[in-house]
Design a protein around this nucleic acid. Structure first.
Lengths: 161, 161
DNA sequence: GTTGAAATGACTATTTA
DNA sequence: TAAATAGTCATTTCAAC
């Protein structure tokens, strides 16, 4: 399953994770390859689904969604499947994880105000017993790619010119 | 606080969230502006920290990190600050949220194997009482930007040529 | 915001190892 | 098979308007 990445691939991926708009030419300079060679490697990494896409990272607060909460929903077997159908229709849900411990789900939601929490909880009630924790602050928040890089021990790089 | 985005900014941001490598020229065509006008708007959005950066989205499984878990740590006042200093030094930690309910933290970690969980928990023990939930599956996982777009009711767009 | 020109980058085909 | 090269086209950038 794990795609075989040589050190050059690794470096290319690292740089694209830090700045997805880095040009093939600059990538090539940094890894000592021609732009076309870099482009070919990147296309292979995309085909192999190692690189899944390129995203602009946005500040949700600029869009007015500043409340984050985690809802733990304990849900018995009869409500399990209906809940899975219902869940993706709720826009506030950013993540839902099925976790160990008695058919429970951990749901991360984002809202534009605390007022939206109660209606949301009421919509979940038919499926199980929700326990809500508001997020007061987030001392650590790493993007998956940033986390990966840190984990792999790569040095950080300053933003290009 | 909330940067004032007109509909054109909104469209540009939407497209960059879907594909951060879209060229200024193509963005300009889609929103009916010249490439330079688009570039200027984007630079302003970057300065205003509405766009925080551009990232390649990677498949962690391709890198061997397939285990996700949530650890809830209940932690009394004396351990609060030391914990906050200790936490960023742990590479496995992807997110840590300070949540309501008796000085508790909710920590999302990613590991390459379940064997790494026990040592991690032992490192947390001095700071409080950990409760661990393994993630069995993740029925919903939306990028913050994807979530934003869905929430804002934008139509999805097919990948460019 | 627009236009236009110069520099840079991207893409394809071909050559090389 | 993988990379370099060269030619062509597209894009970025910056000036002037």
């Amino acid at each position: 399953m794990a795609h075989d990445l040589d050190p050059i691939d690794h470096n290319i991926v690292r740089m694209l994770a830090e700045d997805a708009r880095t040009s093939y030419a600059e990538l090539g300079r940094k890894v000592g390859l021609s732009p076309s060679a870099v482009a070919e490697r990147i296309h292979q990494l995309e085909s192999a689904k190692v690189i899944l896409g390129y995203r602009a990272l946005l500040d949700e607060k600029a869009f007015g969604y500043s409340v984050m909460a985690f809802i733990r929903l304990t849900c018995d077997n009869t409500h399990y499947r209906p809940f899975l159908k219902f869940l993706p229709t709720i826009d506030a849900v950013q993540e839902c994880h099925h976790i160990t411990g008695g058919e429970a789900f951990l749901i991360k939601v984002r809202l534009s105000s605390i007022d939206q929490l109660e209606p949301l909880i009421e919509r979940l009630l038919p499926y199980g017993m929700p326990t809500t924790s508001m997020v007061l602050s987030t001392p650590v928040y790493r993007q998956q790619e940033a986390w990966l890089l840190r984990h792999a021990g790569f040095p950080s790089r300053t933003r290009k010119k």
